[in-house]
Design a binder for these strands. Structure first.
Length: 284
RNA sequence: CGCGGGGUAGAGCAGUGGCAGCUCGCGAGGCUCAUAAUCUCGAGGUCGUUGGUUCGAAUCCAACCCCCGCAA
């Protein structure tokens, strides 16, 4: 609880909004940087990011500026510099932060990352933990440098996974656990009371960004039930475990739900009553 | 005008001009020590809406409403 600490928050998707709100509550958020508006949905309507939409209003009255630069170029950096922030906090922003931006805040740039670094650096740490069947993972708060998820770690917290955790549920858990950790560590960090632990480079592993094809499997040669279950949970709600059957996309959701292109999701048992030829008969 | 799938019984689906069907569920009963087992019987539908074509439309045509997948 220290309103003298001036923070700029970088984040884009809905699940980081609670983090932003916690920061606004405890510190002085002077700027919000989020991804540019995107065309979204069947109607292709230009829509601001979840962070832009949910940021507490009225921003202007609170002296908070909202930025959605296409690129973090010199022009954007100049604007950010004007905010005179102590600290930048980055959570799923979606763009690489260049050095000239990293150099702006007095106390550097802090990133939250949902794995126990140096394990699972990169874009899909949560999915990786689920796909690998890990029993535990965790959240890390680190100081960013120019290399990906490479900087020294301020704090970590271990989190256990259940065998029903999905990307979504685990992500929520991670956020819940991260918020108090973050709120607690920021003033200590500013006060210079936090040990910065360099990461052990030899233990580093990397995860790549998930794309649509990662969720695909061949219906003629499906993964083992265990593997499929992990895929369903790791890739929910996007891109989902999916296959092609009779020329149509069939998706699998947690809870033994199956959805064929154009149809609503149905329990696998119900689905099989309508499509008795479907090759996958159960999901256990 | 981004591309595409779909709306038929409570659920999942078949039916593409000639009496509205299948599987499951539901109700009653039989057989069972018993049963998510099994047998018999049964209820449950203005086939998304409106109009058109036709002797006759779930089915063909037109418009509209709603749900969904892709793409981003």
């Amino acid at each position: 609880m220290d309103k003298s600490i001036k923070i700029v928050f970088f984040g884009t998707p809905a699940f980081v909004v609670p983090i932003l709100e916690a920061l606004e509550e405890n510190f002085q958020v002077v700027g919000i940087v989020t991804g540019p508006d995107q065309k979204i949905g069947r109607k292709q309507i230009l829509t601001p990011s979840a962070v832009a939409t949910n940021a507490r209003r009225p921003l202007a009255a609170q002296g908070v500026t909202l930025h959605k630069p296409e690129r973090l170029d010199n022009e954007a950096a100049l604007e950010l510099k004007k905010l005179n922030a102590d600290l930048f906090i980055v959570a799923a922003y979606g763009k690489i932060i260049p050095q000239n931006v990293l150099d702006i805040p007095k106390f550097g740039v802090i990133n939250i990352h949902y794995s126990l670094l140096p394990k699972y650096r990169g874009a899909s740490p949560i999915q990786a933990a689920i796909l690998n069947g890990d029993k535990t993972s965790g959240t890390s708060i680190m100081q960013m440098d120019i290399k990906l998820d490479h900087g020294p770690v301020l704090a970590t917290k271990e989190i256990s996974l259940s065998n029903t955790d999905t990307f979504e549920s685990l992500n929520t858990k991670m956020t819940q656990e991260t918020i108090p950790l973050l709120v607690d560590i920021i003033p200590q960090f500013i006060a210079g009371k936090v040990d910065l632990k360099p990461q052990n480079e030899e233990e580093a592993t990397f995860t790549k960004i998930i794309n649509k094809e990662d969720g695909y499997f061949d219906i003629g040669n499906p993964p083992t039930p265990e593997k499929l279950d992990r895929m369903i949970r790791a890739y929910y709600p996007w891109p989902n475990a999916w296959t092609k059957w009779n020329g149509k996309i069939v998706k699998f959701f947690p809870g033994e739900l199956v959805q064929m292109e154009g149809k609503n999701p149905a329990k696998l048992a119900d689905f099989l009553r309508g499509y008795p030829d479907f090759p996958i008969k159960n999901l256990n």
